[in-house]
Design a protein around this nucleic acid. Structure first.
Length: 788
DNA sequence: TTTTACTTCGTTTTT
DNA sequence: CGAAGTAAAA
């Protein structure tokens, strides 16, 4: 039993409390994952519970993966039988089996935000709704929050009968669901909602899962919404062995429907529930913890608790204020460099956290010029890149012809001369005959007033048919490559994106690689499975910590992670807390921001630095901000304000700064006064070397960003970024100077062995087995492999 | 039908 | 400032 002796008293109690409902209030860094995994191990090894009867739910794939890894390590046998997955993937797995009972086809596709938006856009057009007055996003917000609360279109309508505008929302909601059904598609919220619906309409299916999942645990419980609560409630109804783990102070997803009452009222719903608090923190030093406690104390309506540690005080929390955001970035990067060269830290020890994704840009620019390896988590999701979505739309069309959004996306990609008016005609026809859009395409010959485009449509249908046949026997990666070749995607990309064509092709190659590794992992998974996996990954899931790189991410993405040294940048009122949260009439919005600050602070093990800038460019305008109130909530004795900007000074300035009207100068006057260029250059030219544009050089396009294993290696990568390739041959090389079996090197992946060479229509397809990065397939003209 | 030139508008946060 | 969307021209 020695394994369990490493736990503290409360942790041990939590591990041993296996029967009945259990609420585990686990503060940041209190070892909750450890408790969860040990608890499961205890169930299996000491109580003889079958791994097959255990369900462990998390929010991110990364967390699920970590859970599985740890379980593998501590459980000798059968760990892989434990169902450890996210809410969403759990639901997909269940729905793939049973959704036909709800009138869907089991090959349903999953819609992301883009797809949802185009559905709503289409509806608005048909309903004659002006999307300038009410944006698509607004409708989607309403729909999503209704779904979070398990309110069906019907219920929504009856609840909002009196209100004219809301009735409108109801109509759109209803039609939206109708369209999704026709397209055989589900959005993210539907995954949960439909599973609940399935359980409620098919008791025997529910019972089946109730019998299987005898022990259920849910991580990050404070972030669950009503629908997720209901899902869990149903599953646990029979066994009532439900262990939820959460921290109300870390609830930061209210905007996504998280209902904190799930955790606050747990004991009412489960009167027999036991409650255990974990308050000992094993992560941070005393000063950091006290700072975190001091900040969160300003929130009302939280479960009372205070983290403590028996580690020493550690160093103070650092705070620096700068004139401009450039100087802020400059300082952070410089500080990292000096600590690394001083030998106290390595790059991988650092994380820079910020409120909004846009803030990453400046930091990246500095990091690149300093040649520091870094990763950005988030930003534009890999799978929402235009080029990736194009390819995926082809795959979706092949897999599920009912998915109208996908078909419409690619019907004219590359340009085939099928324009909006033709599509409108096809739409009308489909509507009239009550068939799907794709079926209308197949029926093009019978549509009278179509005219010339008929031939083009037929060609498209034939193309898709060919792909469908090939999909039967081809691997997914080969299918993708075949699609790329047949539609000549490369020239298409060249035509619409001259500058960053290379990056885009690179991204597509990366997708091929993902397909390869997917198939290796799953031993030939189906196309549906691939598309589903792709739809459910978040950016954080792709993060691998084995690179010794500085990490940049939003505070939201940082939840659940920890780092020896953390910078929280942009600690300014108006940015963090955000302008709208600070000015909202509902004080809970500000409290949510404060929890975010709490999350950020508690990511830190040893070194925490808070920074802010007096001036910051936001959408082309200069904004004047005062120091964040969250900084001011930290007691003076825990802070170390540096020599130049002592606390007194910034406090005085902060108070004076209020003249700016909460620190924000929104008016156009600021810009006009400075002249349209001056505003942009002000900050940079004044502070010496900040003007290192042309920006085309440093930041070709956002595409380069999340292309994640991006290692800035001095000039090499700078040249790559600078688009030096522009002068390079666009046309593929007729031959390459390496052959199968040769050793080659790649800018990004390093050394590898050429496995296979294949001549394409206009390029050479190279398969390389890289020592570090594994097997990759790439086009010779873009890969620029060097023989070694 | 496609390309271009111009206008508008926005930033929280994401499974 | 830039992306994205709209109106007009080719």
């Amino acid at each position: 039993m020695s394994v369990y002796d490493t736990l503290n008293k409360e942790q041990k109690k939590a591990v041993l409390t296996t029967e009945g409902p259990l609420l585990l209030l686990a503060g940041a860094g209190s070892g909750k994952t450890r408790v969860l995994t040990h608890r499961i191990a205890y169930l299996i090894e000491e109580l003889g519970v079958s791994p097959w009867n255990i369900l462990a739910i998390t929010f991110t794939n990364k967390a699920a993966e970590e859970m599985r890894e740890r379980l593998n390590r501590i459980i000798g046998f059968g760990a892989e039988q434990i169902w450890a997955a996210t809410f969403h993937s759990t639901c997909v797995r269940i729905l793939r089996r049973h959704i036909d009972r709800l009138g869907f086809d089991n090959h349903f596709t999953i819609y992301d935000a883009d797809d949802q938006k185009s559905v709503v856009k289409d509806i608005c057009k048909r309903f004659g709704i002006d999307t300038k007055q009410t944006r698509e996003k607004e409708f989607l917000n309403v729909i999503s929050s209704a779904k979070d609360k398990l309110i069906s279109p019907l219920e929504y309508r009856s609840q909002t009968r009196g209100d004219f505008t809301k009735r409108r929302y109801g109509e759109v909601y209803e039609e939206y669901q109708e369209v999704l059904r026709r397209n055989n598609a589900l959005d993210f919220d539907d995954l949960i909602v439909k599973t609940v619906e399935l359980f409620k309409t098919c008791p025997e299916v529910l019972e089946n899962y109730q019998n299987r999942f005898c022990y259920i645990s849910v991580d990050e419980y404070q972030d669950t919404n009503r629908a997720q609560f209901e899902l869990i409630r149903l599953l646990a109804e029979k066994s009532r062995n439900l262990c939820v783990v959460g921290d109300d102070d870390q609830s930061i997803y209210k905007f996504r429907g998280a209902d904190i009452r799930n955790i606050l009222n747990f004991e009412q719903v489960y009167p027999e529930a036991k409650v255990i608090k974990l308050e000992q923190n094993y992560r941070s030093t005393g000063n950091i913890l006290n700072a975190a406690n001091a900040v969160i104390r300003h929130n009302k309506g939280r479960k009372d608790k205070a983290l403590w540690t028996d580690r020493g005080e550690g160093s103070n929390v650092h705070f620096r204020q700068f004139d401009t955001a450039y100087e802020e970035a400059d300082y952070i990067v410089g500080d990292i460099v000096s600590k690394v060269s001083g030998g106290t830290r390595k790059f991988g020890d650092f994380a820079v956290l910020y409120r909004t994704n846009a803030q990453s840009r400046l930091l990246e620019e500095r990091l690149i010029t300093e040649g520091i390896p870094y990763d950005v988590v988030g930003g534009v999701n890999f799978y929402s890149r235009r080029e990736i979505k194009d390819v995926l739309a082809y795959l979706k069309t092949i897999d599920n012809g009912l998915d109208e959004v996908a078909v419409k996306r690619i019907i004219n990609i590359p340009k085939r001369g099928i324009g909006p008016s033709t599509i409108a005609r096809l739409d009308d026809y489909a509507q009239m005959r009550d068939i799907s859009f794709y079926e209308a395409l197949e029926d093009a010959d019978n549509i009278m007033d179509l005219g010339r485009p008929i031939a083009k449509i037929n060609a498209f249908v034939t193309l898709i048919r060919t792909f469908r046949t090939k999909a039967e026997f081809m691997s997914i990666s080969d299918l993708i490559l075949d699609i790329l070749e047949k539609i000549d995607y490369k020239s298409y990309v060249d035509s619409f994106a001259e500058e960053d064509a290379e990056d885009r092709i690179h991204n597509v190659e990366e997708l091929v690689n993902k397909a390869v590794s997917f198939q290796e992992a799953r031993d030939q998974g189906s196309l549906s499975e691939f598309l589903e996996e792709v739809a459910l990954v978040a950016d954080i899931d792709n993060m691998n910590d084995d690179g010794n790189r500085v990490l940049l991410m939003t505070l939201h993405s940082a939840k659940g992670l920890e780092f020896p040294a953390v910078y929280m940048a942009g600690m300014e009122d108006g940015l963090f807390p955000s302008y709208q949260a600070a000015n909202a009439e509902d004080p809970s919005e500000l409290e949510e921001e404060r929890r975010l600050a709490y999350v950020g602070i508690t990511r830190t093990k040893e070194d925490l630095t808070l920074t802010s800038a007096r001036t910051r460019m936001l959408r082309g305008e200069t904004q004047y901000n005062t120091v964040s109130r969250f900084v001011k909530e930290i007691p003076e004795e825990l802070l170390d304000g540096g020599t130049v900007w002592g606390r007194k000074q910034w406090q005085r300035m902060g108070e004076g700064g209020d003249d700016f009207g909460n620190g924000t100068a929104w008016g156009r006057s600021a810009r006009k006064g400075a002249g349209s260029f001056a505003a942009a250059e002000n900050g940079s030219s004044r502070s010496e070397a900040r003007d290192f544009r042309p920006k085309a050089v440093l930041r070709p396009k956002t595409t380069a960003k999340a292309d994640k294993p991006f290692i800035a290696k001095g000039m090499d990568s700078l040249n790559r970024l600078a688009g030096v390739s522009k002068g390079m041959p666009k046309q593929a090389p007729a031959a390459v100077d390496y052959a199968e079996g040769d050793r080659v090197s790649h800018v990004k992946y390093g050394l590898g062995t050429v496995l296979h060479l294949e001549k394409d229509v206009r390029d050479i397809k190279v398969t390389v087995d890289f020592d570090r990065a594994g097997q990759k397939i790439m086009y010779a003209s873009f890969a620029k492999l060097k023989k070694v």
